Amino acid sequence: MTDTPVETMSFEEAMKELEAVVNKLDSGDVPLDASIALYERGAALKKRCEEELKRAEEKVAAITLDAEGNPTGTKPVEGL
């Protein structure tokens, strides 16, 4: 695991570290205090992954296509 601030991580970085946190917690070999810290880090990583997925979904939803089905750019997604 890293000391990288969660809010600066890419989706892939956050997901990889989240998997490491889950594996460590699943092992059962972590003292209680460390387990609590790992759980908190895991929760922050999960939130980061969700935010990055939502951002990507919004970008995909905003792509417009021309008559031939080619991307022409993006437009704002209504309601966001």
Rank of each mutant, 00 (worst) to 15 (best):
M1K: 09
T2Y: 03
D3L: 06
T4Y: 05
P5T: 00
P5N: 00
P5I: 01
P5G: 00
V6F: 03
V6M: 04
T8G: 00
T8P: 00
T8I: 02
M9W: 03
M9K: 04
S10T: 14
S10C: 05
F11Q: 00
E13A: 09
A14Q: 03
A14K: 01
M15E: 12
E17W: 01
E17I: 01
E17A: 02
L18F: 11
A20C: 07
K24D: 08
K24W: 03
K24V: 04
K24C: 09
L25D: 02
D26R: 07
S27E: 01
S27N: 01
G28K: 05
D29F: 06
V30D: 03
V30Q: 04
V30T: 09
P31L: 07
P31W: 07
P31N: 11
L32E: 12
L32S: 10
D33C: 04
D33Y: 09
D33V: 11
A34I: 15
A34D: 15
A34W: 11
A34H: 14
A37Q: 14
A37W: 05
L38D: 08
L38R: 07
L38C: 05
Y39C: 13
Y39E: 15
E40V: 15
R41W: 05
R41A: 06
G42R: 10
G42E: 07
G42K: 10
A43P: 02
A43N: 08
A44D: 11
A44N: 11
L45N: 04
L45G: 03
L45C: 04
R48F: 02
C49G: 00
E50H: 06
E51G: 08
E51Q: 14
E51S: 13
E52N: 06
L53Y: 11
L53C: 12
K54W: 15
A56K: 04
E58T: 12
E58M: 11
V60D: 10
V60H: 07
A62F: 08
I63N: 10
T64D: 02
T64M: 05
L65D: 13
L65I: 10
E68C: 05
E68V: 06
E68H: 08
N70Y: 10
T72W: 06
T72E: 12
T72I: 13
G73H: 11
G73R: 12
K75N: 14
K75H: 14
K75C: 14
K75V: 15
K75A: 15
P76K: 09
P76G: 07
P76Q: 09
V77S: 07
V77I: 13
E78P: 09
L80V: 15
